[in-house]
């Protein structure tokens, strides 16, 4: 009986080791730089950083990509109830200076174009468009749109030239929560904490570490509303023509003025 028990234990340990090894083969090896960047109190787990790094590098190395998805944004109503508002999103990126972003719902349809010189916003609902001169790189244009015009470009973190550095800029802790499904796709689940927001990301398990879900928790706001994005499809083929990033006004569209963000006193 003791012999059988020992054999059973040995078999169990062997299978457990195999399972761990199977999971490990899908994880890129931690680099020495990643390990060295971990804070001394181990609040930035190497596995989380490594997985995030691989997903970000995958995006950064793609000369062009497109994705489709949905965003869900929480907002507190007058009674303090959290209401979620959804949008369909489509983004095309062609490095270093091409961006097209479509945000739509039955109530509102907007499209953004950036071609290295100009940001154009089309309000499809009213057939109005507006333009503003922008810096020549996508990163700087994104920052100018936000700083000068107060424009929110959701999921723009995917389009910046260095997604990893952008992502961890203010991260204070990182954790790994194993594998979970996102719309049926097994994904690594990571969580990051900062002083201004917390965020979570789900990265597809497999040879293409694609981002499948992204959640930002505005933890310092009443009710801690969340922004959630599901990415339902990715296209990494370079099929986007440069002309796709140049705006052509629809028939009968009217131009309106783009106002700058009012500054504080």
């Amino acid at each position: 009986m003791k012999l059988l028990f020992s054999i059973a234990n040995g078999l169990l340990l062997m299978f457990a080791g195999c399972a761990t090894a199977q999971e490990q083969t899908n994880v890129p090896p931690a680099t020495s730089d990643t390990v060295a960047s971990t804070s001394t109190d181990n609040t930035l787990l190497p596995r989380a950083e490594t997985l995030l790094h691989s997903a970000c590098d995958f995006l950064a190395q793609a000369p062009a990509f497109s994705f489709k998805g949905e965003t869900w944004r929480e907002h507190l109503n007058d009674e303090g109830q959290k209401i979620q508002f959804s949008r369909s999103v489509e983004m095309d990126v062609k490095r270093p200076d091409g961006l097209r972003l479509e945000i739509s719902s039955p109530s509102s349809e907007r499209c953004f174009w950036y071609d290295g010189k100009t940001l154009t916003i089309l309000d499809r609902t009213h057939n109005w468009y507006s333009t503003a001169a922008m810096p020549p790189t996508l990163d700087d244009a994104i920052d100018s749109a936000r700083d000068d015009y107060g424009i929110d470009l959701p999921l723009i973190d995917f389009a910046v030239s260095d997604p990893y550095t952008n992502a961890i800029a203010k991260v204070e802790s990182a954790k790994y929560y194993g594998i979970g499904p996102v719309l049926g796709v097994p994904c690594y689940h990571l969580a990051f904490a900062q002083q201004n927001v917390d965020w979570q990301i789900w990265i597809e398990v497999g040879p293409q570490p694609l981002i499948r879900k992204f959640v930002i928790t505005h933890k310092n706001d009443p009710g801690q509303p969340e922004f959630t994005a599901f990415i339902t499809s990715w296209d990494l083929t370079d099929r986007i023509a440069d002309s796709d990033f140049v705006f052509t006004a629809p028939v009968s569209a009217s131009k309106i003025e783009m106002r700058k963000e009012q500054s504080a006193h």
Binding site: D157, N196, I216
Partner: peptide
């Protein structure tokens, strides 16, 4: 108030 952007880049530039 903390602005609620749908990106880390947008939120981080607020803080």
């Amino acid at each position: 108030p903390a602005a609620e952007y749908g990106s880390l880049r947008g939120n981080n530039r607020s803080s």
